[in-house]
């Protein structure tokens, strides 16, 4: 039996993740075993006579819940009927494509969000005037906004990055305001006693104090930027990304559900990669500060 408490933290987290993945797979197949479609063949051979599940739940049939081995197998089969590439290769390419757009969107969004936060902290007047609009901007569904963006900026990856940036900046602004105003008022009195300029106070006091808050927002924004990049591919009609793959496999769902599931798994993996990258950066940048206990 593996002594789980002997392994270091990261290894433990990965092991737990894999263990839960396996448990999900087992539960998945167990559900189908009990209430899915009759089982005639598995990768390990024909089931003769076919297994007839004792119950019937429509949601567990082979169209709605393809077998785990079919989903995994789909990665290694051709992406489309006459494609020379495996689905796995196509999806990885698509993930890189979408990931690049998401990264640019994240960068732009985070920078803009931070800038907005600084402006709002500098001028309470501007904050009171503009914050309602900022909040309103987030309640407009992105599905409505993205086509408008495409009309203004044109099709192409810039629009996708902008959609991604749009979903990224808000958490950064809100957390930024909180973080930039978090220093002890006496610290600000101290800086005043040094006759420090506002920009000096910003750089030496407010910004370092805001970093933990900004990283928290960055984790939210990391996943939001991936969603934005995926969603943004639909109105721009751009090809080569996960968004397009999702749309295409959506239309093929009844004949090949496992491909859509495979795509969804890859999209989730992309989100996790972004989150992990932010977390890693945080661990490095904030290494000297007392631990916070955040994931």
């Amino acid at each position: 039996m593996i002594r789980l408490n002997r392994l270091p933290g990261v290894l433990r987290a990965v092991a737990a993740f894999v263990a839960i993945l396996i448990l999900i797979g087992i539960a998945w197949e167990a559900a189908k075993w009990l209430a899915g479609d009759p089982l005639r063949h598995t990768p390990w051979g024909v089931v003769d006579p076919p297994h007839i599940p004792p119950f019937v739940i429509k949601q567990f049939n082979d169209t709605n819940l393809p077998h785990v081995w079919d989903v995994i197998g789909a990665f290694f089969q051709p992406a489309t009927r006459n494609s020379q590439f495996s689905l796995g290769a196509v999806l990885i390419d698509a993930a890189v494509f979408t990931g690049r757009n998401a990264l640019v969107g994240f960068g732009i969004g985070a920078l803009f969000g931070l800038l907005l936060a600084v402006v709002f902290v500098r001028s309470r007047l501007l904050e009171r005037a503009l914050v309602p609009y900022v909040i309103a901007s987030q309640t407009v569904p992105i599905i409505a906004l993205a086509p408008m963006l495409v009309l203004w900026v044109g099709t192409g990856w810039t629009s996708v990055a902008l959609v991604s940036a749009y979903l990224t900046f808000f958490p950064v602004t809100i957390a930024g305001i909180r973080g930039l105003t978090s220093p002890d008022p006496r610290a600000l009195e101290l800086m005043r006693s040094y006759a420090a300029r506002w920009s000096t106070v910003l750089w030496k006091v407010r910004f370092p104090a805001a970093l933990p808050y900004l990283f928290t927002a960055a984790k939210i924004s990391a996943t939001a930027s991936v969603v934005g990049a995926i969603v943004g591919e639909e109105p721009t009609g751009i090809r080569g990304g996960l968004g397009r793959a999702i749309l295409e496999f959506n239309t093929q769902y009844t004949t090949g559900p496992q491909k859509l599931w495979a795509t969804v798994m890859v999209a989730a993996a992309l989100g996790i990669v972004f989150f992990a990258a932010v977390r890693l950066t945080e661990m490095i940048v904030l290494r000297d500060r007392a631990a916070s206990g955040e994931p």
Binding site: D184, S193, P208, L211, A290
Partner: peptide, 19 residues
Amino acid sequence: ARHDRDYGMVFQAPVLFDW
């Protein structure tokens, strides 16, 4: 005097920057 930094100040809390 403040602009010329003629005084230093100490509060009840140390108010040191933890970064």
